[in-house]
Design a binder for these strands. Structure first.
Lengths: 140, 140
DNA sequence: ACGAGTACTTGTTATTTGCAAGTTTTTTGG
DNA sequence: CCAAAAAACTTGCAAATAACAAGTACTCGT
């Protein structure tokens, strides 16, 4: 997460994308949101990646500020919030899937369920639609 | 660029992908390699992003170590090196294109040539092939 | 032979991260 | 109804990383 002066900030899509994608923790938070059903602060904290609580808080703040996640109160529980992907956040799904595909191809250690890989390679767009609608429905 | 202990390193594709994608500067270096015809150290240094020379050197080292770029001597110039994407590096092109597409959709400031966007949306795979073959031929 | 070009390295300061502990509400269990 | 656990943070501090500035070591063109 590099700070940037207003000067030469605008115009480049990759530079813009790097605001989110160019950060290790943002990527892992997005993964948890997209593929692991994470909703609460504690879900991200205990995702097994060892993120510090102050870093998590700051990342959630920037993701919210960028309009990628939305924070709402949990109706079932007063002092609990639910984090969900906005439409803009869901728009990052194709990029995430491409990273998964790449890692699966080039990293020996990577383990992706074969049915997932097959579905991904058979047709990206239908998988995107499927996951998107699942996530949208869960945000009721 | 977070250091990681061997413990829980393996398995997750996003965690692996974050090694590269989860870093602002790596992303911008990849952009320059893929879309700006950057080849030499100075090309990255003067790309207008204000990367420090020590950071650039360290990133090129990791990208090389990860097998994403290859460093060879420039035949036309003794003390000059050429950096080119390996096949593994080229494999990241689809993910980069998805980021471009996303930024173009959600960031007002982003400016991508309309013909590029059209080509991208008409058919990803043919654009991937086109750029890939261009980059491969230039590495002779 | 000299200055400009190329790819760095080294040092020093500023910023960010990681770790540990503490705070504030809210729910749950007896 | 009261105490303890849960949930989502905040704060403080040491350690790691990044940014800035300068210097080095070859090389090429003139």
């Amino acid at each position: 997460m590099t700070k940037r002066t207003t000067e030469d900030w605008y115009g480049c899509p990759i530079r813009y994308g790097a605001t989110i994608f160019g950060d290790n923790w943002c990527l892992l938070i997005l993964r948890d949101l997209m593929f692991k059903g994470a909703k609460h602060y504690a879900d991200f904290l205990n995702a097994g990646e060892g993120i510090s609580t102050n870093i998590l808080a700051s990342r959630l703040t920037t993701l919210e500020a960028e309009g990628i996640v939305e924070k709402t109160q949990d109706p079932e529980h007063g002092k609990r919030y639910i984090y969900v992907l906005t439409d803009k956040g869901l728009g990052l799904l194709p990029a995430m899937l491409e990273i998964i595909n790449w890692a699966e191809m080039w990293d020996e250690q990577t383990e992706v369920p074969t049915e997932f890989v097959e579905e991904l390679r058979k047709g990206r767009s239908s998988l995107v639609k499927k996951i998107t609608s699942q996530l949208k429905s869960s945000r009721f």
